[in-house]
């Protein structure tokens, strides 16, 4: 079978696309979190990190284009698979009982995915495009610069998260992302055929711990700002 046809036309092929793109995005989320946690090292570090990324277009743009392609493929496979799934059960059961033994997070992947997607759009407008209208603080983040005339990422994050509205949307977004990842990371190994009896427990634990770490790590920034630990 032509590999492309096999990937895009068959049930398991689409699951491979879903799993590989999901895995790539999962790794990005971890990298992104580690980068942002440098805020706890002080303005010097995080501003240097921001400056480095902004002035390395040969890294920035391939990463952005790659991420966009992964997001598009991830959403495309989700829509294609969900439509097939809905068509496969035209008549449901009486009083729509919850599927047996299916975890909550496994049943709400579409919902968590959609809200996370809308959160990502907000996040891009908020800190990447720095659209003043969505930050609810009355400041224009584009004008923040530090003593070395670099973009003051530290100040932007502190001011940005001082808005309770923005911070709570971030925390909600992270909660749903981690619910999504708790099932998604486990299902990714399963879909790629990388799960067996020997590693099943380890993979499940990894999914739980990694999604928990991402939640705590990312939420620590808005929470630290709101608590007045970062000024």
């Amino acid at each position: 079978m032509n590999l492309i046809t096999g990937l895009f036309k068959t049930s398991i092929g689409k699951k491979f696309i879903m799993a590989v793109t999901g895995g790539g995005l999962f790794l990005f989320v971890i990298g992104h979190m580690l980068g942002n946690l440098q805020i706890f090292l002080g303005p010097e570090h995080i501003n240097a990190y921001g400056h480095f990324l902004q002035h390395s277009p040969e890294i920035l743009w391939p990463a952005r284009i790659g991420l966009l392609a992964f997001v598009v493929l991830h959403i495309w496979s989700a829509i294609a698979l969900s439509r097939e799934n809905q068509a496969a059960r035209p008549v449901g059961y009486r009083n729509s009982p919850a599927p047996v033994a299916a975890s909550y997070q496994s049943r709400v992947m579409a919902m968590t995915g959609l809200i996370v997607a809308s959160f990502i759009i907000y996040h891009l407008l908020h800190f990447t495009a720095q659209t003043e209208a969505v930050n609810f603080t009355g400041y224009d983040f584009k004008h923040f610069s530090d003593h070395r005339a670099r973009h003051d990422v530290y100040h932007m994050m502190v001011v940005g998260f001082s808005s309770k509205l923005a911070s709570s949307f971030y925390i909600l977004g992270m909660a749903l992302l981690c619910l999504h990842l708790n099932h998604g990371v486990n299902a990714m190994f399963q879909s790629l055929g990388l799960k067996n009896a020997a590693y099943a427990k380890l993979i499940e634990r990894f999914a739980l711990i990694s999604s928990g770490v991402i939640f705590v790590g990312n939420c620590s920034i808005p929470l630290a700002v709101l608590a007045g630990l970062l000024k």
Binding site: N85, S106, M109
Partner: peptide, 26 residues
Amino acid sequence: GNCTVTGSCEAVCPKEISLNFISRMN
């Protein structure tokens, strides 16, 4: 339909076939 790894099949299977076989098939 397609597998979304909910584990319902394994839970109701009268012969207790493991979800790991789906991973093996993949």
